[in-house]
């Protein structure tokens, strides 16, 4: 018997597979397709203090082996998430969920995290300081170490749950940001968010996406994500949730060898809605193929 279980700051997961925020809604849409209790956990749609419609459409552009999105943190707001989405989720998911939180000021992050701290269903709070699709907030906190540290410190004061900070790859040195978060009390680091990208329609000569630029994700970004997980693993000692272009059981093992304690799967869900389930089912045989009996033992194994 192979052992797929992993541990994130005390939260025991049956396996390392976590659908990434923004590709899995609040879970119940996917629960219509398969029993989502097979998942290690999942990170719910980025939630902000107030309801947001997000950016104008078109919000999506296709790329070679990937896609660009500029959704802009559309969500019903934290009050509606707690009142409506979490009770709906409870009916279809018995495990702890990862609460992904977005914001435009430190006060907003604090407000949202303090409310989610009271929810039993939430196992980890994942603070997104890296959304490339909102102006005047989000990613700006994730592009300099002192701002990242301030958000981390402020959020840690209002919750006893593990806090993971989700980092942007759109920086000069991601390890500096990761170290600042760790020093300010982050329990873990999630990386990477999407890479800022764009496409232009050759017929109209205009950007494909209404907001012009968006976040590039999908299979194509896997080597970049893997490299950054590898670098951050050498820079910090807290657990890492690795993500970016993961779309197979082989990718999961590669990401864990680079230093991830668990792995999120994003864009692949949008193309193959069963991909997380299928990867979990494929992991035991893939582990055997590479002579692995316990996934926990391979974390950072490539260093």
């Amino acid at each position: 018997m192979v052992d797929l279980s992993v541990n994130l700051s005390g939260l025991e997961l049956d396996n390392p597979i976590i659908p990434a925020s923004g590709t899995f809604g609040y879970g119940h849409d996917f629960a219509e397709l398969y029993d989502i209790n097979i998942l290690g956990s999942f990170s719910f749609k980025g939630t902000t203090k107030d309801e947001r419609f997000g950016n104008p459409t078109p919000r999506i552009a296709e790329c070679e082996a990937g896609m660009i999105n500029s959704v802009g943190l559309q969500n019903p707001g934290v009050d509606a998430v707690i009142a409506d989405e979490l009770p709906k989720l409870k009916k279809v998911f018995d495990k702890k969920v990862i609460a992904n939180v977005g914001g435009f000021s430190i006060d907003e992050y604090v407000h949202t995290c303090a409310l989610l701290d009271k929810e039993d269903q939430v196992g980890i709070i994942e603070v997104n300081i890296s959304c490339p699709n909102v102006h005047g907030g989000g990613m700006s906190f994730g592009t300099n170490p002192s701002d990242a540290a301030s958000v981390t410190e402020a959020v840690k004061k209002v919750t006893t749950k593990p806090v993971y900070i989700k980092l942007s790859p759109n920086v000069t040195d991601i390890t500096e940001i990761a170290k600042a978060c760790e020093a300010s009390g982050a329990d873990g680091i999630s990386l990477i968010n999407t890479l800022l990208g764009m496409r232009i329609n050759l017929k109209t000569k205009n950007p494909v996406i209404a907001n012009k630029m968006g976040g590039f994700s999908g299979k194509a970004i896997f080597p970049v994500a893997l490299r950054m997980v590898y670098q951050v693993y050498e820079a910090v000692s807290v657990p890492i949730i690795g993500m970016g272009g993961v779309s197979s059981a082989d990718d999961v093992i590669e990401m864990m060898l680079a230093g991830a304690s668990a792995v999120q799967i994003g864009a692949a869900n949008l193309v193959d809605p069963y991909v997380c389930r299928d990867i979990i089912l494929a992991l035991p045989d893939t582990m055997k193929k590479y002579g692995i009996d316990n996934l926990k033992n391979i974390i950072g194994g490539a260093h």
Binding site: T23, G25, G54, T57, R59, L270, P273
Partner: peptide, 10 residues
Amino acid sequence: CGFGACMGCS
């Protein structure tokens, strides 16, 4: 995605 997950077509 075409099935409600990504909020791309809101």
